[in-house]
Design a protein around this nucleic acid. Structure first.
Lengths: 209, 209
DNA sequence: GTCTATATTAGGATAGAC
DNA sequence: GTCTATCCTAATATAGAC
């Protein structure tokens, strides 16, 4: 029984098309064309294009909230931090259509605004949690103001690295390299690690280039 | 003779509407409505909406290239650096419609792609120029790899701060606060200043909050 | 230069047969 | 569940009078 439900095929194909062409440039006709089904059929499964977007968003949201559910006073190792960043950028890349037209998408599908903001807040909180844990382990030293600024900067970068990266190859939007983003994230934190850790993380960061 | 040419009024109003509603959401009808002229009249002055966008882009480009024309081996004081960042964020804010739908706008008006990339490159180069000058003056210490990463991060932030900031108040897109962006930029450089300078710049940065 | 009226598409969405 | 045919609307753009 290898038959995949049409409904799911629509979601999969939409995601691919959204990511490579940009959500605003993908019409329902294009989606159905790509799937070799009729537009009517598509509308049998989803009552609007917005519904497809919302359902993809829900999947994104679920993945993110799961990933970002960092318990408050947990102890985070450098390996875990590393792994976390890796997963985060991978998830963002998988749903990059959201980020590449973020303001646009959020204004046209207003119901997503608060939900997206919640994810953002969780993201900042997760970064803060990690940094605080590293501080408790005396691997990091940072003042409260710097910590605020750093977490905001990490959030901004996690959000917009993929869009920024896309600017260099707008012709081929399939190409996506989350590694470079992780590298930048690590380098944002670098100055605040203790000297020995700093050296170690500098080396780690190179593996992402 | 206070009469402003219709052509210029179209450009002014378009810029305002683009900034507050997003370029994709602004129709030629809305522009002419706002100006209380007929759509036909608008098309007498510009043969397409894209032409309006391109002309606004040209103004943006001219301002930017002028601002970014930092001579190669110039000596930059901290005050000049500060002032430069200030002007930069002000210019970005004035044309924020470009940045808020960057990928979208650049894919729909392909001719702007290379021009925008040129501006980006100049931006990174300007940051590098400033940092190198500060290094020569022994106010900053930074390794070549860190410098690369920092300049890229500064460019990303200069580009996307306004869009990121907009996320918090998508309802009122008039509100724009370039100050906070400058603050973040200064904090990105902070770790690489010499200790005395660091203290001084930390204080300076507070004035931007 | 400016207007009114209208043409042209394209995209989202529905109706009804199979 | 799927198709074909069609509707509706909004947006870009043009024609021709004043």
């Amino acid at each position: 029984m290898t038959k995949v439900k049409t409904r799911d095929r629509i979601l999969d194909t939409s995601l691919v098309l959204f990511n490579s062409l940009g959500e605003p440039n993908v019409t329902t006709l294009l989606i159905s064309d790509e799937l070799e089904i009729s537009p009517g059929n598509l509308y049998y499964h989803f009552k609007s294009k917005g519904d497809i977007v919302e359902e993809l968003f829900s999947a994104f949201e679920a993945e993110m909230l799961d990933l970002l559910a960092v318990p408050d006073d947990v102890t985070v190792s450098l390996e875990q931090q590393d792994f976390f960043l890796h997963l985060l950028f991978e998830a963002v890349a998988r749903y990059r259509f959201l980020y590449q037209d973020l303001v646009n998408v959020l204004t046209r599908y207003e119901r997503l605004q608060t939900r997206f903001r919640r994810v953002l807040k969780k993201k900042t909180a997760a970064f803060r949690g990690i940094c605080e844990s590293l501080q408790r382990q005396e691997m990091m030293v940072i003042s409260p103001e710097e910590l605020d600024s750093l977490c905001e900067q990490l959030t901004l970068t996690a959000c917009y690295w993929s869009a920024y990266d896309t600017l260099s190859h707008l012709d081929d939007r399939e190409a996506v390299d989350p590694g470079r983003g992780v590298y930048q994230m690590l380098h944002l934190m670098l100055p605040y690690y203790m000297p020995e850790i700093q050296e170690r993380m500098r080396l780690t960061s190179l593996t992402y280039l």
